[in-house]
Design a protein around this nucleic acid. Sequence first.
DNA 1: TTGTAGGCGTTATCAA
DNA 2: TTGATAACGCCTACAA
Lengths: 358, 358
Amino acid sequence: MTGSDERNGTVAPAPGRKARRVKIADIASAAGVHPSTVSRVLRADPRGRISESVAERVREMAKTLGYRPDAVAASLRTGSTQTIGVIVHDIEDPVYPPILRGIEQRLLERGFMTVVGNTGYDPHAEAEMFEQMANRMVDGVILGTTRLQDPVVQRAQELGVPLVSVLRSTEHLECSAVVNDCASGMRELVDAVVAHGHRDIAVIAAPQDLSTARDRLSGLRAGLAAHGLEVPEERLFTVERMDVEAGRRAASTLLERRPDPPQVIMAVNDLVAIGAIQACRARGLRVPDDISITGYNDIPLVDMIDPPLTTVAMNLSEIGMRSADCLLDRLSAPEAEPQLTRVRPELRLRESLATIGR
Amino acid sequence: MTGSDERNGTVAPAPGRKARRVKIADIASAAGVHPSTVSRVLRADPRGRISESVAERVREMAKTLGYRPDAVAASLRTGSTQTIGVIVHDIEDPVYPPILRGIEQRLLERGFMTVVGNTGYDPHAEAEMFEQMANRMVDGVILGTTRLQDPVVQRAQELGVPLVSVLRSTEHLECSAVVNDCASGMRELVDAVVAHGHRDIAVIAAPQDLSTARDRLSGLRAGLAAHGLEVPEERLFTVERMDVEAGRRAASTLLERRPDPPQVIMAVNDLVAIGAIQACRARGLRVPDDISITGYNDIPLVDMIDPPLTTVAMNLSEIGMRSADCLLDRLSAPEAEPQLTRVRPELRLRESLATIGR
DNA sequence: TTGTAGGCGTTATCAA
DNA sequence: TTGATAACGCCTACAA
């Protein structure tokens, strides 16, 4: 015996001060077996076959003593925290919650927990966040902030931290990625726009260092080309950040620069599209009577705005779940080749896209 | 010497297989000092004053060797993971992301990470989630799923896990809580409704085992009473879940039951209000010409829907930040009395509330 | 100012 | 089938 252990003895967690936490050793001595036996029973270790009578006694004792395993101690020993990290730009960006939901749900089924980090679009914060997570707190990382050339991805390789990119991918697929099939979504959208009679098309795009932005623009161009159309230079605008405010500014600039408005503005995402709607209104244009607008994402409530927005719905929670699956795969097979998974989106035709020349 | 240590020796992280992780002992032997000295330097331990020359050498060595502290090992020793858990019903519910953002931002400033758990409105999942987190993975928990009588709150007390309730509080303030001041928000909203000439008021409320639902309804009644008005029993409806679908069903029932629609439907939150708008439309009522509708929360885009929704904006990220502060306070002073913090909301008057009798 | 030694709670390996 | 022992990496009295 090490010291005087007079404080426990009763079963109840002693309403007094700090109920000292019961550990495996306590169960062991109470059940009259060795700690390692307890450990084997409690983790149902398949190798150490324990007699059912002992196992029963141990489990019973664990329950009466109110044993709760110490995850930290186990992690130190096993080298696994059963926790994964998710890094996003801004959890208030409506694309992320459904993804997180999918990730968290799938991970929980497999006994993992999820830690999240916002970077606020700051690349430095991204790197720091990753470093934090990698310091052995997580078994792997799902990166929602991936750029085409991403230092975090490279760092993960250096450190041997399993990493999966979600929503975007890197230039040469340095790591596995689960993305929306932007090209196909844009293709469908363009087909619809052209079918509605539009020919004079303006585009609000985003910086091309994000694979989504790049894929959407190239998908758009490919779609137009199939109809013998293109986006003239003076009809192409770029926003730095994909939010309502940026959309408003870009659309204002667009409408100022040329006296004749285009027939349709195709925005890189819904928030930008909403900004564009506001800018059009502010200049006295009716949407969609005078000008049509399209978005991308189908974020919540865009079917309820005025006018209901034509857009493309990614299947975000599915993307989230797939990325979780993908990461779990990598945990068991770290040396496997990176995989690219494309999840197919769906067109949502609504009133913000009107028919022309009728 | 324990074994043959021929594998390290070079500085670079050896491109071969698994670059064995460098630890404090490696730095110590490389710098020719004792591990404890290294530890003191790296944590800038204020008590053990280390000569600047040694400290400098140690830091340099740590950097060249690419040392990264093992958070798990430190946690085991110190009993603190520098991590807190946040439990929410559903991260897709738009009230949560801003709160999470506030929490995460504030915690990061203080060197904490955030793990989140969705319960999907399942009380059993709540309890299990809490148990998971409490198994020493987190230093404290922020609970976003609190009911008036909440077993998780009680369990936290038993285990001595610091816990703060966010958005809702328990019946007798068993733990600190940071909430929206629903009563005052509802009061302002009712004043506006009455000022717009409405007298025949229907209410879609929520189950009274949530403090928010309870406070909003009582605030609403108090507000009406101040004008000599009340909600007749047949004008009061309850939804089990506060989403669009539930709102639609409740409003349909409400409109069916009496041939004459009320002048206004005051919904317990925005999603329910949107459902109500849809139900009214489905029955051929124009909003707000034939019937006005109000919500609560001011979730993203409700200013853009048709018609723009009159609602009350909580200051959610502020609520999140305050709850983080509150939890950090409890970590340093666990025995302090529970505190209730009310964050004041703001009325947002928009077109869904029309003037009557004009 | 620095070194010594012990332990946080668990699990893995070896021996019985 | 079970027990003994060591180690995971770090921190912190205490001693020097």
